[in-house]
Amino acid sequence: MIDTTGTHHVRLTVTDIARSRAFYGDVLGFPIAAESPGSPDDPVVRNDPMQLFGGVVFQANGMLLGLRPVAPATDRFDADRVGLDHLSFTVPSRDDLVAAAARLAAAGIEHGEITEMADFGIAILAFFDPDGIHLELTSPL
């Protein structure tokens, strides 16, 4: 086995950096760790990892979450295709799920009910980002 010490970062491909930046920053409240100084409309920036591909990186639950704005505006996420199914962030308690559901609702973000999965010792709250990427918040029971 390769000896890893955790997840360093996840980068999501998005269609509209301003919309996604507002969702992850304003709605979910993730602080920005780094942001591209260049425009994602510039092909050189969009292909340069040192310029974060024109995107932004958030600090999220002890890991980095990057957004790369290179998908066509008409593209939508599909969990039934090869690749990412969903991304789940841990919150400390079920009460935090309740508070998150209220925050999502106040922002006009549709979400599921809090689902207790007793066999796994967790509760989850599912919702989608602006590109339809399936996200969850997970708490211990």
Rank of each mutant, 00 (worst) to 15 (best):
A79D: 12
A123W: 10
P31L: 11
T7C: 11
A71C: 09
N47W: 06
P37S: 13
D16I: 10
L28P: 05
V91M: 04
L65D: 00
S88K: 02
R94K: 15
D96G: 02
D3A: 11
F89T: 03
A99E: 15
T90P: 08
H111T: 00
S36F: 04
M50N: 10
V70K: 07
D119R: 10
G83K: 03
A100W: 07
I17T: 03
S88A: 15
E116S: 10
V56N: 02
T4M: 12
S20L: 07
D3W: 05
A102R: 15
T15I: 13
I109F: 11
A60M: 04
D16H: 14
T138I: 15
V27M: 07
G132D: 10
V10Q: 01
T15V: 08
M1V: 11
A106V: 03
G121I: 02
F77L: 07
S36T: 02
T115S: 12
D16C: 05
G83S: 10
P40M: 06
S36V: 06
V57D: 07
D131E: 04
A18T: 15
L52P: 01
P49R: 08
T5H: 13
M63D: 06
I133P: 00
E110W: 12
D78Q: 05
R81Y: 14
S139F: 08
P49C: 04
S20Q: 14
D119W: 08
P72I: 12
T4K: 08
E113A: 14
A118R: 14
D78N: 11
G83C: 08
F89C: 05
L97S: 08
T4E: 09
E136V: 02
D129I: 01
P140H: 12
D131K: 04
I133H: 14
P43D: 00
D78G: 01
F127E: 01
R76S: 03
D42V: 00
V44M: 09
A118L: 09
F30Y: 02
I122D: 07
V98P: 01
L65Y: 00
H8M: 04
D75Y: 09
R76H: 06
D48N: 13
I124V: 15
I133E: 04
R46F: 13
G112Q: 08
I124P: 02
E116T: 12
T15R: 15
A33V: 03
G83T: 00
G29D: 07
T90A: 15
G6E: 03
N47E: 15
A79V: 06
A73D: 11
